[in-house]
Design a protein around this nucleic acid. Sequence first.
RNA 1: UGGGGAGUGGUCUAAUGGUAAGACAGCAGACUCUGACUCUGCCUAUUCGGGGUUCGAAUCCCUGCUCCCCAGCCA
Length: 561
Amino acid sequence: MNTNTAPDFIRARIAADLAAGKNDGRLVTRFPPEPNGYLHIGHAKSICLNFGVARENPGGVCHLRFDDTNPTKEEVEYAESIMRDVRWLGFDWGDKLFYASDYFERFHAYAIELIKMGKAYVCSLTPEEIRAYRGTLTEPGRDSPYRNRSVAENLDLFARMRAGEFADGTHILRAKIDMASPNLNMRDPAIYRIRKTSHHRTGDRWCLYPMYDFAHCLSDAIERITHSLCTLEFEDHRPLYDWFLDTLGTPYHPQQIEFARLNLTYTVMSKRKLLQLVHERLVDGWDDPRMLTISGLRRRGYTPAAIRNFCELIGLSKKDSRIDMGVLENCVRADLDENAPRRMAVLKPLKVIIDNYPDDLVEELTAENHPKRPELGTRQVPFCKEIYIERDDFLEEPPPKFFRLAPGREVRLRFAYLVTCQAVERDPKSGEITALHCTYDPKSRGGTAPDGRKVKGTLHWVSARHGARAEVRLYDRLFLSEDPEADKAVDFKQNLNPDSLTVLSDCWLEPSLGQGAEGQNYQFERQGYFYADPASASAAKPVFNRTVGLRDTWAKERGRD
RNA sequence: UGGGGAGUGGUCUAAUGGUAAGACAGCAGACUCUGACUCUGCCUAUUCGGGGUUCGAAUCCCUGCUCCCCAGCCA
């Protein structure tokens, strides 16, 4: 699918490193999520990169490492969902599962080393004071009054911090770097803060926890990661990443390389905002099919292959960009077109009575499961005098180029018969069309007339006497504007699309779809791809989620008037 | 008027001093028992602007502009 064979700048660099014999020819990457939320499509890009690069190179390895250094935000539920999602996407970390929290003792030892070198100190300023001392983007910061505490005093204080003698926020351990650095990250950044919170893995063993900048580079070094790939916003953390490792003289010094994170139109990607949508119940949980989380996409009916292909297609660079949602949609269409079995389902039913069809006759007609893959076989679909067709497939006054059903017009019922509309039945009060009367050509069984006459329109249908009733959920984009976060003055939730979910509860499925379809992808012919919602398996009637509609040039044509 | 990044068709990505390529979108058509799929053709960039070096510049130099990130005891 991706015809552009040129490697991206990261793969090119890795290839060069490998060719130059760097890192003894090893290649080790890592995917380092914080277990503070569910994975989304943006993480998929990183997962495909890190695991992909490892898979592509002989001997390459990718670690899954939980960056669990902040117990106030992290939960096991998240860690579990992350593992499930990475696996579902088709990647395997083997026995390379790590937790930053497993290194807490080593981090602590490194911190003490820093103190002994005179490169770290306990600062007892309040958070507000620290901010004031930090200076601004254009003014240098000022040294903390605690900056010159003796090594002995720092050691003592740090020990007492660990022992739990101090309350949250009263002291932190800081690196002693340069309060005048133009890079704010270098103005004596925090290394350890006190958090009397129990951790999802270490319980109450610790009351002080390392900061990201300290923990991440050390974790990478401990695991002997060769290429530490992260997003652009960490670019100006790289000097700090390098400072810690150089200052401590770790046996190994990984290379951090940054790339642009994924943005998509009509959605938000930050975990913080997704969490808000979940907590404020604006969506139906992390796996709401409108969410661009991995679990949401899964429940929507996306396939791992489609997501992987998408990640490959969009490329990799350092340029801020926003990918059109249509690209993602095309990727599932492509996968499902090839792999999803076809079925017929009527979403907005209109009854059709075939007047010249025997009252009690039921015929089992043969329908192919996939037009291009005969090996996927056929199925039998019952046909009788009363059927449903799609309301949109009939128009009393058809406009030009409309070649579906209309009074006096003949169309084909897919895999069945040619029928001609003879009369319209309507509600005398409302005038609403309640049913159509048609006649069929008995000689057109299967869908072709022996005289070879052509009909332009083919409609899908379901037997009104045999079909299974179902609920179908149609999803539209979650937000109204391409970039819901564009206007910083407006809450992004103001941009939510009120019509992002449409529930159709009077849908009719061909009988083969009535039960046991959960977790299956189908194409409902002429409509789109649908996924039998596993979360609704116990509902009274089957529930199908629309993954994505078929490309609809007729709708486009209509949209022009 | 600090620091770090980035600017190539509508959108992504490639071309790494040798004369702008691919994909998606769009448009037109062919095919069709899915107005799908597939196929064909077309369209859109003198590469953010301005200078310079060079036989030759998207690539190198100078200069200007625009956008993104950084002032958490978040990651």
